[in-house]
Amino acid sequence: MMENAQIKPAEGLDLYERMLRIRLLSEHILEVYRDDVMETPVHLTLGQEAVAVGVCAHLRDEDVLSLGHRTHAGALAKGLPLKSLLAELYGRSTGCSGSYGGSMHVYDPEHGIHGSSAIVGGNIALGVGAALSFKLQSKEGVAVSMFGDGACDAGVFWESMNYAALAGLPVLFLLEDNQLSNVMPKSKHLYPDPRAIAANFMPTYFADGTDAISVFLSAKEAISEIRRTGRPAFLHCPTKRWMKHQGVEEEDLPFIHIDREKDCPIQKLESFLLGARMATPGELKQVRAHLEEELEAAIHYARQSPYPPVQALEV
């Protein structure tokens, strides 16, 4: 489903760069995590990069992204500087949350990230609140509430959609559906099709969450509809989680089938860009080299940064 007419080469390369940045961060975490240099539980986004990147390509800095516990892809895609995220993971005071948040709690209001939450579901409402704020202040702006299939179990999912529809708010409900809640398959925790539920409240869109172009095109439609009408929309992106729910071990659930060649959003985009002659192998290599440098510098920055002073906790 790769209709190249609708995406410009620069846009394609931008998707590529953002996804690869996230991927390289994950790979760095895999490399060092077992040495305990990052004392924080990580929920990796390996294999899921396309969802956040395809959506955030249509957002401006002032648009809001409300995230849950699985933060890395969304935060970087929205513009959180890599070095701030790395410093947070390394527990340093220069981290995006001053080291008080860790992997699950990222903060970067300049890029529309007003904090993320590790209690499943609640962040959906915060995105709706940001949309209400845009409306009350007559500001242009779209809020995106990003959540997993597990969050659809929670009452706050329904309540948030209901209010957003009643009040007419510019918010995108972005379902990053890896079909898992920890080790539970979706069939065990969620009875209805969430998109069918959402369709009672708002227009719904669908994309292949392992395919950045697919997400990019559906998100473009959904977000321009939100900007045009000021009303909510829902985007469902089935995707695949490569790793265990949390930590650095590969997923090994018997009912999960992952083909790292076919399911890889980055490889998919690479072959698309090359096949459509939207990029040359040299250009892609250049992007990678530039990102590797950026990562090296960010690691250096994080590791050189001071730990926070413990005096802050003296009573």
Binding site: G91, Y100, P308, V310, L313, E314
Partner: peptide, 18 residues
């Protein structure tokens, strides 16, 4: 002797002090 009256920070150095 209790926690300080602030939410728990994430960084290891702070967490151990908390």
């Amino acid at each position: 002797m209790t926690f300080p009256d602030v939410p728990m920070p994430a960084s290891g150095v702070l967490e151990r002090r908390y």
